[in-house]
Design a protein around this nucleic acid. Sequence first.
DNA 1: ATAGACTATAAGACTTTACATATATACTTA
DNA 2: TAAGTATATATGTAAAGTCTTATAGTCTAT
Lengths: 209, 209
Amino acid sequence: MSLRYAILGFLTIRPFSGYDIKRYFDNSVRHFWSADQAAIYRTLADLEKDQLVGHERVEQQTRPDRKLYRITPAGVAELDAWLVLPAAAVVRREPLLLKLFFTNRLGGEGLSAVIDAELAAVEAQLAEYKGILESIEHDRAEVLQQLGDGDAAEGYRKVLVGPLITLTNGVRIGVAYRDWLRGLAQASEQGALTDSAMLAELHRLVDDV
Amino acid sequence: MSLRYAILGFLTIRPFSGYDIKRYFDNSVRHFWSADQAAIYRTLADLEKDQLVGHERVEQQTRPDRKLYRITPAGVAELDAWLVLPAAAVVRREPLLLKLFFTNRLGGEGLSAVIDAELAAVEAQLAEYKGILESIEHDRAEVLQQLGDGDAAEGYRKVLVGPLITLTNGVRIGVAYRDWLRGLAQASEQGALTDSAMLAELHRLVDDV
DNA sequence: ATAGACTATAAGACTTTACATATATACTTA
DNA sequence: TAAGTATATATGTAAAGTCTTATAGTCTAT
């Protein structure tokens, strides 16, 4: 259950309420990690039970009180121990590949429809990454101008590296996915989606490995 | 719940027992879809309740009886309807990216350890794909020699296309992942893992998009 | 001889994730 | 004025998937 660690990680940046964490999730790691609101509140309660976080009530006049969570030293220790561990293996589960596995039942038009829909989704995803990059750069320019050239600016730039690494992953994987889909679409149009053509391509790819 | 459709798809190839299906899963689609043994038996029961599959008991002397499942016409219709639908969006959830998001807390050695472990996993995965390719080609040569040049050979080659498409996806995504990790490892070694270097790389990638 | 792996099915408990709903107030838009 | 969106937390429930154990015989290797 990595959600615990995601939340602990966020709380090393600054104190958050559950509501804040949900928004932060959606704005920063959504492209590789999503979290349900209900799960966040329940996980915060669990983390508090284990004394990895604590909270103080912040009263508000017009809105419900906020519970502002802070990470404890035990929480930091737990997080740092997890960070250096090799990442757990991911179980890929892709409905698209399942469909394509049965391409022989799909026929030309069906295949095109499935591929085109997926291609549109991947391209939208890539466009989103482009937007994220622009917004990061925009924020960065602003913040660095305010902070000047001191340790604070250094710290800010170090924190940026992680998010940029994950973004790079998203773009690279997205591009690879898109290129694969384009190749399929093209082969399908040209009636070149045969076992021998696929085997030839695989050899080209694998020899490179 | 795509497991239903995966099973229906397999049953269009030939009748299977639950045990067979589990093995078939592990030998053919494991790299993009895994299924728990208990889940398979339960799903088969569900599919039968919905009359999408039926079974006959096959008695065995030395081993427990097998329940040999066959897809029904209703099952075929259900499968074919699902196949042409756009694939459901996948929720990516990658613990590795979560760790790297907090690179600033990780330090040089910690980062190297995490990246190296992942690199080893990806390279093992690619080697496995290579093995799968070889075994497919080996089987193919054998089967085609037996079948000669008729409709049966045509049919066999058509069924092969789907699996080869998914394998191509695995190799391409694997290679992209590996290259991304290698870039990270190299940058990390050279102390070039800075926000400006990452931004420059992202621009190179995104301009290509 | 004994431990482990293979064939074959199945139930039980548990975890994780998702979806819906509840409460309560303020602000905006049609 | 009604509907929708935003802030803020929380519970109930269902679906999907994992892990464990049970039964029962065969075969292989140490």
